[in-house]
């Protein structure tokens, strides 16, 4: 064996992403993440990949506090600016395509070619949503005809802090497909990464941290979904929750908890085969976490000569 072969490679410590920082779990706990059963690779199937942090309810609380702080700045930024920031995220993703290809291959047990296709689709999906930031108001908003001397305008506004239970099966493309629409419209997100496949999500945080997304706009927690999600669903300061990655039983429990402060809830797909993340997503997820603000404004055309109507 040559001298070069004897080198020990440096292992990566995966960490949470909260408020633009990379903390360990407050609890100090980690859990083992292994490759998918069908994954290839030198050491074979089910091999150890990394220890991921196992977030506690206090990590969830901290993440919500960080997200709440970020809402004003992010939702107040111009839609154009948010779009530019999201394009930048796609650029950073593109630059680390090889890394994500390897991570997705391990996580989902795909061949290199299929994994690369997933990563490419995730990057394209991100670009697609980036383009929507300054167009969603034209689709979801309206100038309403009313019987009176008023301009009546409906404009979509972000819901606020959105908890996202990321899809369990699709570690990157599925994650991007649920996360990008939430933040494109100006919400702040607290993401619970796929329980068995959290590594692509934790790596995505590194891209977000280096691409002008303000700290706290996206927060990524890894760990037991059934432990973290109920805290988020019951949290009074979370405005909406996306249950995509919760199984039927957990989703029901979370929806009950979310009802107490009238959270907006996006139910998981009823399709037993799960969602096809490669399909055209449509605007459903973009408009799921928007509130409509309607403004009545006098036209000013009511004068001594009578109404212009």
């Amino acid at each position: 064996m040559s001298q070069a072969d004897a080198r020990l490679s440096v292992l990566k410590t995966y960490k949470l992403y909260v408020g633009g920082k990379f903390p360990r779990s407050e609890s100090g706990r980690v859990y083992e993440v292994t490759a998918a059963k069908s994954a290839g690779g030198a050491a074979g199937r089910g091999r150890w990949l990394a220890n991921a942090p196992r977030a506690s309810r206090k990590d969830a609380r901290d993440a919500v506090a960080a997200a709440r702080k970020a809402v004003a700045g992010w939702s107040g930024a111009t839609a154009y600016n948010r779009g530019q920031v999201l394009y930048r995220v796609a650029e950073m993703l593109q630059g680390r395509r090889e890394q994500y290809t390897a991570e997705v291959a391990d996580a989902e047990g795909l061949s290199k070619a299929k994994s690369a296709a997933q990563v490419d689709a995730a990057i394209d999906r991100w670009v697609w949503y980036a383009g929507w930031t300054d167009k969603v108001a034209q689709v979801a908003g309206a100038g309403n005809p009313v019987a009176g001397p008023y301009f009546n305008l409906s404009a979509p506004e972000p819901t606020g802090v959105v908890a996202v239970v990321a899809p369990q099966e699709s570690a990157l493309l599925g994650l991007v497909s649920v996360l990008a629409p939430v933040i494109a419209t100006g919400n702040a997100a607290v993401v619970v990464a796929a329980e068995e496949r959290p590594l692509p999500a934790l790596s995505l945080a590194e891209v977000l941290a280096t691409s002008d997304v303000p700290g706290g706009v996206v927060n990524v927690l890894s760990g037991r979904t059934a432990e973290i999600a109920p805290t988020l669903a019951a949290h009074q300061d979370v405005n909406a929750i996306d249950l995509t990655g919760a199984d039927a039983e957990l989703a029901r429990e979370l929806e009950v908890a979310a009802a107490d402060n009238l959270k907006r809830v996006l139910r998981p797909s009823a399709d037993p085969g799960g969602t096809d993340w490669t399909a055209d997503p449509g605007t459903g997820r973009l408009t799921a976490f928007l509130e409509t603000k309607t403004v009545w404004h006098p036209t000013g055309s009511l004068g001594v000569a009578g109404s212009a109507y």
């Binding site: 919500v64 949290h235 009074q236 300061d237 908890a257």
Partner: peptide
């Protein structure tokens, strides 16, 4: 038993 927020 549930975390509160500044809305409350």
């Amino acid at each position: 038993g549930r975390y509160s927020g500044p809305d409350y």
